[in-house]
C-alpha cells in the first residue's frame, strides 16, 4: 500500500489520512489474533485444548495397547501424557506467539 515515490500533494494527503485514521482508532496495534478475548472464549478454548490433547493421548494409548496386547499399560501412560500435553497447549496459548519459542522461560511481563 505504501508507495515511496509519491508527489508532495499525495504526501500531505497521506499525512492527513493517517491523522484521520488515528483519530478514528483504526490504526490501533492489533493484539495476538489467535487468542480469544472474552472470558468465555478463553475458558472454552483452554478446555478444548486440554480435551483434545487428552483424547489424542487416550487414542494413541489404546491403539498401542491394541497393537502390543498390553492393555491397559499404554492407556495409563497415554492418559498422563495426554493430560500433560493439554497443559502444554494451554500454557502455549496463554504465552501467545512470542512465547512459543521456548517452553522453559516464563513470560517477561
Amino acid at each position: 500500500m505504501d508507495d515511496p515515490g509519491k508527489a508532495g500533494r499525495d504526501a500531505s494527503f497521506e499525512a492527513r489520512l493517517a491523522a484521520a485514521r488515528k483519530r478514528q482508532g483504526l490504526d490501533e496495534p492489533k493484539a495476538d489474533t489467535d487468542r480469544p478475548v472474552s472470558p468465555w472464549g478463553v475458558g472454552l478454548r483452554a478446555g478444548l485444548e486440554v480435551a483434545s490433547a487428552l483424547a489424542v493421548g487416550v487414542g494413541l494409548g489404546l491403539a498401542a495397547d491394541w497393537w502390543a496386547g498390553t492393555r491397559p499399560l499404554f492407556l495409563v501412560a497415554g492418559v498422563f501424557l495426554g493430560g500433560a500435553a493439554g497443559i502444554v497447549n494451554v500454557y502455549r496459548l496463554m504465552l501467545g506467539r512470542r512465547g512459543k519459542k521456548d517452553l522453559g522461560t516464563p513470560p517477561a511481563a
Binding site: L48, S52, A55, V56, L81, G82, A85, R92
Partner: peptide
Amino acid sequence: PIIIPVEIISYLSRVVSLSVR
C-alpha cells in the same frame, strides 16, 4: 522420554481441536 511423547501428542491434538472447534 517425557517431552517427546508430550510434544507429539500436543502436535497431533491440533487436528482434533481445529475440527472440534
